[in-house]
Nucleic acid binder design. Structure first.
Lengths: 105, 105
DNA sequence: CTATTTAGGACGTATTTTGTCCAAATATAA
DNA sequence: TTATATTTGGACAAAATACGTCCTAAATAG
């Protein structure tokens, strides 16, 4: 059993297709423009925290899951566009631990 | 022997203090405002790629090292401000591998 | 063929970040 | 102390980024 690697956009599209709803239908429930939801599903726009909240509620899934998907997308894209070493992410992990332990804000 | 956890700002300040130069002196060589360099050392501004290039050249260190320091800072701060799971960074790693393998841009 | 859905460009707006200018605060030296 | 240089930090304009909407074209469904 593999981990399924995807993006937040693809994940949202999958969720929507699983219940066979159109962009228009979901967008109106979430309270955003149809075109905007389309862009979000194609990763052309990033959902705001408010939008994520509404989306999570609508699909009855954990909001934290979507945030993790969004952030990890952003980090991955960033690593690739900067052509940075993957190790950068491990360094970031160490920093989180360190900063938390040392209460920097 | 421990890994030294720091920030890009602190690292730049250390580099400068090791050669006992003032902000003004370094800033002028790098071609930026004194105040801006001060802010960068205090992590109040993020150096641009151009600035990193000049700084690396001036201190004769690897530019990639500074970029890694900068990116890992950004990721760590982001994780903390979103109160996201550390695992988010591991997911990002997986995505980088996956995207590279699947040539997404 | 018609109706609906999705894709995508263009564009104004809003938000965020940068860089500069100054002045206040701090440190250094005499 | 007094003078000089350094560093800090706020305010603000400018630049860069990202968002959301409108509209049209393309694709899909019926």
């Amino acid at each position: 059993m593999e981990k399924s690697i995807t993006t937040i956009g693809e994940r949202l599209r999958t969720l929507r297709e699983e219940v066979s709803l159109s962009l228009r239908e979901v967008a109106s429930h979430i309270g955003i423009d149809t075109s905007l939801l389309g862009k979000i599903e194609r990763n052309e726009r990033q959902p705001t925290k408010e939008q994520i909240k509404h989306i999570a509620k609508f699909f009855k899934i954990d909001e934290k899951l979507l945030i993790k998907e969004l952030l990890s997308d952003q980090f991955a894209y960033r690593i690739m566009e900067e052509e940075a070493d993957i190790d950068t992410l491990k360094v970031a992990e160490d920093k989180v631990e360190y900063f938390k332990a040392n209460k920097k804000k």
